[in-house]
Structure formats: structure tokens, C-alpha cells
Amino acid sequence: MEYFAIVIGAIFVNNIVLAQFLGICPYMGVSSKVSTSVGMAGAVLFVMTLATIVTFLIYNYVLEPFNITYLQTISYILVISSLVQMVEIILKKVSPELYQALGIFLPLITTNCAIMGVALLTVQNDFNLMQGVVFAISHAAGFALAIILFAGIREHMELMDLPKAMRGAPAALVVAGILALAFMGFAGLV
């Protein structure tokens, strides 16, 4: 039941993009086609889960015991960026197909505040490792839901005849706003 609340809360109620404003850069940047947004969502799922596990271990077994939690920001960003590099190198060697699919999205992920945000939230919420993993996976699923829905809408918007000043980012932001409005309907669910 407790896990169920985490999952529903992360995907619908506190959707990472539409309610918490994390990961807006990739959300705006790679959402013009459904196929690329699926790739991005996959890469986020992969890295977010790994990053949450690694940063959880670092926080609880290194930073906390040595009383150096003020180094949290520095250590997290270094760990996440080196993790992304490592994942990229390993994927290239072990699974070229997966690398083909996710490869170009991986470097973009280092600057994705969603990854770091979820890692920080896991600590803030005092989750244990299992809860942290479920939390990360459901946040990634929420990201996937938001970006794939959005990409579907944007593909249709290509054909629309909009005023020149509204084309591109402004129209996309207004659409995201309306999507956020729809997601507000889930408020109070858990």
C-alpha cells in the first residue's frame, strides 16, 4: 500500500515535469517527435534508477557517517556525471543496440535536473533503498508519460497555422500549461 501511494503520487499527483518543474530542458528540447521522446524517456528511466541507488549508498554510507553532508551537492553532481559517462562506455561495449537507441540522449542527461532532483528528494523524504528505487522508477514513468503525451500533441501542432510570434517554444509552453491543468485533476488522489 505504501509503495502504491509512492507510485501513484509520483506518476500522477506530483508529476515530475508538470507539477514539480524538473527536467523541463529535455521536455522542451526532445519532444518534437514521439520516437525521440520515447528514447529520452528510456534513458531517463535507466539513469535515474541507477543514480538514485548510487547516491543513496553514498549519502548513507559515506556522507552521513563522516558527518560531511554539506558536500552533498558537489558529490552528487560528480557522481551523476561520472555515472552517465560510465553507463555510456559500458553500453557501447555490452549492448550496441541499446546504445544506438539511447546513446545520443545520455550526454544530455547530466544537465537534466530531474536526475539530481530525484536523488535529493529521496534523501529529503527519508526513504530506504527499496522505496528510493520505486520512487525513482515511478518518477521516470511520470516523465515518460508527460513527454510522450506532449510529443504526440506537438506532432499535430506542426500542421497548425499559428501566428509567427507564437510558433515553437511559446506555443509549446502554453500546451504544457494546459497539460499541467489536466494533471491538476489528480490532486488529492493520495
Binding site: L18, A169, P170, L173, V174, A176, G177, A180, M184
Partner: peptide
């Protein structure tokens, strides 16, 4: 209230970008 909540951020930002483009 909608402008304090999440949707207002996206919509307000969209219109401010239009202003700056102009």
C-alpha cells in the same frame, strides 16, 4: 489560483516569450 499553481507558470512563460520575441 491557477496562476500560482503549475499551469500558470507554463502559460505565463509562454506569453512572456512572445513579448520578448516581439
Amino acid at each position: 489560483l491557477v496562476f500560482v499553481l503549475a499551469p500558470g507558470a507554463f502559460i505565463g512563460m509562454g506569453y512572456l516569450i512572445i513579448l520578448f520575441n516581439y
